[in-house]
Design a protein around this nucleic acid. Structure first.
Length: 417
DNA sequence: AACCAGAGCAACCGCCCTCTT
DNA sequence: GAAGAGGGCGGTTGCTCTGGT
């Protein structure tokens, strides 16, 4: 395809905009709207290409733009969303009212990236640069500090991912069934069972005996396995196949890697995800694949599933799902990368890898180190050994409240949440 | 006061996607 | 279905500002 740049016409001005040009553009758009950007410059009497006009408008002249220093909350939000979304600045900008993607991108590159680097956190992966900060041998104060910082960032990421999963679930719920969702994760030779249908409260994870199950949609899962050749096993109680998914979900299990922080989903998905083609159809780009409904459709198409209620399996590790679904306890049956990712992080918290925040049932009441235990021994995360101090809990709670409020207030058409 | 280096940011470039014909 | 137009997006560039010497 390809086409020539819109600015290659001779005589078109480039470079910084003058106040006069700004005024012309502003006046024209206020009176007529921008309409076709390509046609706009001539109509507005500007010697600029349409693209330049559009950029000037969207990044600078638009009346609903807030300029100036970023607040602490905005910074935190950017970091959180960057951990989740990577360099998808426009998506991030959707959650920062009145900020442009360009501004956020610049701010990230000039401030936040450096700050994270100074903290010993890789700004790309949002992980500590020296991995053994996780290790048991990190008795040094430096490592402890890193761990603390890292836990904060990881918590941020967890929150965002969980949010994403919730939204995905809400989409899918419109198309699904009433089958209870039950999910088991093998963790260090023990199964962790998540069964929202039997729990009304909190993230419930119980260790259970290993079972064998079968699953109609095994092929899809095998594809996942190929993509992520790590060890974890995911079982689905609704059927009887053992599903082996190397999904990054499992990274949390043994090597404590986590998904989205280490890898941007889009990049990973597009570059290495072997399930690029389902039934000869391309899976949606990750940009859109957050629209889980589309993924659901693709997977159904691939599996030839005619009955959504019985053929696929949903992973919903997010608290709102797991907490009482009331009569709506149906699992939507699709494997969502985001869901798995979030689950991995919940598991990560469950395993007590850091003083991690873990969701409780009330999304506005996130407690540090708390996790509901379905009577089976919730593991290290809930024993308080890795919890924050009380004041820090409050601080974190407050922080998350603000973030969640922000995300909740996100535009409905947001491509992310 | 002059010079230099680094930071900050507006704007450009080019790729990609979607929509229209 | 193919091709082109329009626009969005992320990466990069280069100018300006600021602080240090």
């Amino acid at each position: 395809m390809g086409r020539s740049p819109c600015c290659d016409k001779v005589g078109l001005k480039k470079g910084p905009w003058t106040p006069e040009e700004d005024q012309k553009l502003l006046s024209y758009i206020q009176e007529y709207g921008h309409g076709s950007w390509r046609a706009l410059p001539a109509k507005a009497g500007l010697q600029r290409c349409g693209k330049s006009c559009r950029l000037r408008w969207t990044n600078y002249l638009r009346p609903d733009i807030k300029r100036g220093k970023f607040s602490l909350q905005e910074e935190q939000t950017i970091i959180q969303l960057h951990a989740l979304l990577g360099n998808r600045w426009s998506a991030i900008a959707n959650h920062l009212p009145k900020r442009t993607d360009n501004e956020i991108k610049n701010y990230w590159n000039t401030h936040l990236k450096k700050r994270l680097t100074k903290m010993g956190i890789d700004p790309v992966t949002h992980k500590p640069k020296h991995h053994d900060a996780y290790g048991s041998g990190s008795g040094h104060a430096k490592d402890a500090a890193n761990l603390s910082h890292m836990a904060q960032w990881e918590s941020a990421r967890l929150e965002a991912e969980a949010r994403l999963v919730r939204e995905s679930k809400q989409l899918i719920m419109t198309t699904t069934n009433n089958h209870p969702l039950q999910l088991q994760l093998q963790h260090h030779h023990q199964l962790v069972n998540i069964n929202p249908s039997t729990q009304t409260h909190g993230v419930v994870m119980t260790k259970a005996a290993a079972t064998t199950s079968s699953l109609p949609c095994l092929d899809v899962l095998k594809a996942w396995q190929g993509a992520w050749s790590s060890k974890p096993i995911i079982r689905d109680n609704c059927s009887s196949n053992t599903i082996v998914s190397g999904m990054n979900m499992m990274m949390a299990m043994d090597d404590l890697e986590s998904p989205t922080s280490t890898l941007n989903f889009p990049a990973v998905y597009n570059a290495t995800y072997p399930m690029q083609s389902l039934n000869g159809k391309q899976l949606p780009q990750f940009k859109e694949e957050l629209d889980s409904t589309m993924v659901l459709q693709e997977i159904h198409a691939y599996n030839g599933c005619t009955d959504e209620s019985t053929t696929t399996n949903a992973w919903f590790a997010e608290d709102s799902l797991i907490r009482s679904n009331g009569g709506n306890d149906g699992s939507s049956n699709v494997i969502l990368p985001a869901a798995a990712a979030a689950l991995s992080n919940i598991m990560e918290g469950f395993c007590g890898t850091a003083d991690m925040l873990v969701y409780n049932s009330d999304e506005q009441n996130i407690a540090a180190g708390e996790i509901s235990d379905n009577g089976g021994g919730g593991g290290g995360g809930g024993d308080g050994s890795c919890g924050r101090s009380g004041s820090n809990v409050e601080e974190s709670r407050s922080y998350w409240d603000s973030i969640l409020n922000l995300v909740n207030a996100s535009p409905s058409g947001s491509p992310v949440f």
